[in-house]
Simulated assay, not measured.
Amino acid sequence: MSKQPQAPRPDSWLAGPLLGFDTETTGISPTRDRLVTAALVARGPLRPDGSREQTVTTWLADPGVEIPASASAVHGISTERARAEGRPVGEVLEEVAAALSRAMAAGTPVVAYNSAYDLTLLESELTRHGLPTVRERLGRELGPVVDPLVIDRKVDRYRGGKRRLTDLCAFYGVDPQAAGLHTAEVDVVATLDVLEAMAYAHPEITRIPRERLMTWQAAAHRDWAVSFNDFLRRRGRTPDVELAWPLPEALS
């Protein structure tokens, strides 16, 4: 897919400001592992020429625990570097949570690939450090959140192959403009680009009313999760995919 994304309608949520979000962490458990880096990429409303103003903010935190070699191999941050260069994780969590809360309160969609991981990790870390969660700051549930992974599974359900961010970049013709993904800010830019390319291929997603984005995606995720759990059962494996989105039932 080499064409540029088609401009969304001026009244679409996609034409307005977007805030991309990603983290890199000490492992793969969103409830037990710790924050190492975070990135926010703010894109302004779509201009008539199809461009957007873009601002990137990144954080490096000292998570207060050892970073396993397996995690360092993915994102390139060692325990030594995090301790020497990273800020106290509580300060980083506060700033990230404040920025996300402001965006959600203003109705700006927070765009995150596999958002359930990053948002669960953030809420768990905030609780661990005695800080108000994003939900507590909002006084309501999270949202709006837009997850290209959830959307892709819904609009192209029967496409074969994996659906990692690298796979979606290849499928939707997005060049991450780097030697590889897994740096938080690179992942965020790629996620935003994938979302816009996906909207070109499936313009119906831009017509979802802003107020229905969360319920539409929650239902889409649940449909996929139920189906995938059935697949696991048929293979004699434990059906362990969480049905709730964007946070697990245990955090509700």
Score class of each variant (00 low, 15 high):
P5R: 03
A7R: 15
A7P: 08
F21G: 05
T26G: 06
I28Q: 12
S29D: 08
D33I: 00
V36P: 01
T37C: 07
A38T: 09
V41F: 06
R43M: 06
P45A: 10
R47I: 07
E53D: 12
Q54S: 13
V56T: 11
T57F: 12
L60P: 04
P63C: 03
E66F: 08
S72H: 15
V74S: 03
I77C: 03
E85H: 12
E85N: 09
V89T: 06
G90N: 02
A97T: 14
T108Q: 12
V110T: 10
A112D: 08
A112N: 02
D118L: 11
D118T: 03
T120I: 00
P132K: 03
V145K: 04
V146L: 02
V146T: 11
D147P: 06
D147R: 07
D147H: 13
P148N: 06
L149C: 09
V150H: 11
K154L: 10
V155Y: 04
R157N: 03
R157D: 09
Y158D: 11
R159Y: 02
G161N: 08
K162T: 06
L165N: 01
C169Y: 02
Y172T: 07
V174N: 07
A178C: 11
L181M: 08
L181S: 00
L181R: 00
H182A: 09
V189I: 13
L195T: 13
A201S: 11
A201D: 10
H202L: 05
E204M: 15
I205Q: 05
Q217Y: 03
A218Y: 00
D223F: 09
D223C: 01
A225I: 08
V226R: 15
S227H: 10
R234C: 09
R235F: 13
G236F: 13
T238F: 02
P239V: 08
W245V: 03
L251V: 13
S252W: 12
